[in-house]
């Protein structure tokens, strides 16, 4: 038999655990994901779940303690706190999503360009970035809201702007290392344009760290929204977000602590979930390693 190539037999391909499999094995992250999913479902189906109309106030039920009727008591205008928390989840989640989306839209392209092009382009983008990041985030947001006027959309746009440099930094860092990969050089050898290399070869390989950062930022944005709304710079009455509820309930903390605590716990749990999921993703993303001996 002469030495011709023999067709590779249909070997069973090696089993590599997928990202999902690895994430599912991470128990903490799974629990966090399930809790977050529950919160999202509650937000989506709020009208069917909430026991009361969140906007209807009853003069006979001002600052009531928790009861079968009012699970977490009622607020200073006689509204059901539980129902308001359920409805507020919509605003809080959408607001965080909005902030992170803005951060991604601004930060991702800048990060890709800075990392891929390098040179003076990188220097300029990175220096501006450093300057922005050396500013306390919330203060910067307060200034921006101050200029644009208080509203939830403005507040979250401000948060998004403030978070864009963090996204940019993560994307730039990953791009710098991906740029040196042999497959990027191989793409250039094939004749890919720079745009194509960035979109098809670099971007998909920086999404891992990017998703981690975005998830953690979701939690941060939720907190920032709460902070701004608490200060009256975010959600405006009669709308309710968790932060705004915390703000309105806080002055009555002495007479009726439950609404404050409930809002605080909901915020903390959600932020914690985002952080734990972020950790879980980071641990599961790791490149499939080759099976050496």
């Amino acid at each position: 038999m002469s030495a011709t190539t023999i067709n590779a037999p249909a070997v069973a391909l090696p089993p590599t655990s997928t990202f999902i499999q690895r994430f599912c094995r991470n128990r903490t992250a799974m629990v966090a994901a399930i809790i977050l999913l529950a919160i999202v479902l509650i937000a989506v189906f709020a009208p069917y779940i909430a026991p009361h109309d969140p906007a209807r106030s009853s003069l006979r039920a001002i600052l009531k303690p928790p009861s079968a009727m009012y699970w977490f008591g009622s607020d200073d205008l006689g509204r059901d706190v539980a129902s308001r928390l359920i409805f507020a989840s919509r605003l809080s989640l959408v607001a965080s999503l909005q902030a992170v989306a803005i951060a991604l839209v601004i930060g991702m392209p800048l990060g890709l360009i800075a990392g891929y092009v390098g040179g003076w382009v990188d220097t300029i983008i990175s220096r501006c970035n450093d300057a922005l990041m050396s500013f306390p985030a919330l203060i910067l947001a307060v200034v921006i809201v101050g200029l644009m006027g208080p509203s939830l959309t403005n507040a979250m746009t401000a948060i998004g702007l403030v978070y864009a440099p963090r996204i940019m930094r993560v994307v730039r860092g990953s791009t710098l290392s991906v740029r040196e990969e042999v497959y990027v050089r191989a793409a250039r050898a094939t004749g890919c344009s720079d745009t194509r290399i960035i979109l098809r070869h670099v971007l998909p390989n920086v999404t891992g760290p990017l998703v981690v950062q975005a998830t953690v930022l979701m939690g941060q944005a939720l907190l920032a929204e709460a902070g701004l709304s608490f200060l009256g710079l975010g959600t405006q009455p009669p709308e309710a977000s968790w932060g705004a509820m915390l703000g309105t309930a806080f002055p009555y903390m002495a007479e009726s602590p439950v609404p404050t605590i409930a809002a605080g716990v909901v915020i903390s749990v959600t932020v914690l979930c985002f952080n734990l999921i972020g950790d879980g993703i980071r641990d599961s993303v790791g490149r499939m390693r080759r099976s050496g001996d």
Binding site: A186, R200, M288
Partner: peptide, 13 residues
């Protein structure tokens, strides 16, 4: 064609 086939193929394609 590059030396190391582990790093010369984009893992996400």
């Amino acid at each position: 064609v590059f030396q190391d086939p582990y790093s010369s193929l984009n893992p996400s394609m």
